[in-house]
Design a protein around this nucleic acid. Sequence first.
DNA 1: AAGAACCGCTGACATTTGTCATGCGGCGGG
DNA 2: CCCGCCGCATGACAAATGTCAGCGGTTCTT
Lengths: 204, 204
Amino acid sequence: MSKQIRAVLAEDQAMVLGALAALLEIEKDIAVVARARNGREAMTLVAQHEPDVLISDIEMPEMSGLTLAAEVHGRYPRVHIVILTTFARAGYLRRAMAAGAQGYMLKDRPAAELAECVRRVCRGLRVVDPELAAEAWTQEPDPLSERERQILWRAGEGKSGAEIAVDLHLSEGTVRNYLSEAINKLGAANRIEAARLARSKGWL
Amino acid sequence: MSKQIRAVLAEDQAMVLGALAALLEIEKDIAVVARARNGREAMTLVAQHEPDVLISDIEMPEMSGLTLAAEVHGRYPRVHIVILTTFARAGYLRRAMAAGAQGYMLKDRPAAELAECVRRVCRGLRVVDPELAAEAWTQEPDPLSERERQILWRAGEGKSGAEIAVDLHLSEGTVRNYLSEAINKLGAANRIEAARLARSKGWL
DNA sequence: AAGAACCGCTGACATTTGTCATGCGGCGGG
DNA sequence: CCCGCCGCATGACAAATGTCAGCGGTTCTT
């Protein structure tokens, strides 16, 4: 029997952080050696403890889990990284893998899978939600142009065509054209649906 | 020493659900007798177990935690209710209290507070985040009628007037009127802004 | 029974949004 | 050089959205 797996946990919601730690502590072969509430704190704690694995959320204040993953992977390549997030977005998965993460877990999955995922990752395996992985390969990359992105973003915030035009120094007609194009590319029925769709794919 | 506190837990993210359960199970005086992943399931399980306390998230599929709270409070007034959510919104708090909840906890708070909150609530006390409570008194109350809420919600999802009309068995004109009224009440420029505003205040 | 307060409906109207065809100037590659 | 592409623009039109005034029916008050 090998030694315990030493884990650092990063998650911005304190209650969830504590709960996840409790969940992992149930496992006799895993020990949570430190807890962080944002990316910067996590970086420090990883440096201090050089754990076997870092389990991190993505959307955190100070430093995103993706940035954190990249930095940790660069400086401490022997620390395995598991991203644990709410968002099943192909774009996030792509970036996580590029940042050197070995695992990408969804908070939607049964609690039991977390410990199992940690173990596998520490044995050098990759663990990715199969459905999401499939989607990441299938999914065409972001079809939006930069302009379309800017415009769709503002539209999603409730701005009118006129306001967006002023914002970006464009004519109102042009804004309508871009919006129409974006709606069409995304197969949506109107700007709102288009914005929601793009957001859900991680393109906004 | 009295008997263990029996709790039902409702939370849509399975991993968080499991983790919170693990967190509570650490306490010797609390037992999680059932776990639900949405409001409807929770309702059934409360009926089956008639627990001492129901701990529920707000934003869940099938049935919102607020609706759930109201139903449970109506049918099983002896079940204490704690709302556990990410959102520090005065409107949510207000509605939770109106629905008969005794506790309103934020997922931001330290993990240790959860068990303590559960104990207090079971002793008949109310537990509310003090900062949020203060804000709830300051803020003007929800100006939206139930209809306006239903309609604004759907509008915020990108549905057209026609779709909403079918959804709610109303005429399209009526939908437009309600929407106009809501936009006006909220001081917004259009349905999207109105929906965002209402959401941010916890009125949706 | 009269009035007030709602709720849902209609019709008319102005404005915003979505779609299309088309034009203009700059820029890079054959 | 000339072609084609790209970003931005127009104009014209249909459809969706926002605003208003007003109508009938129900329920609650008085």
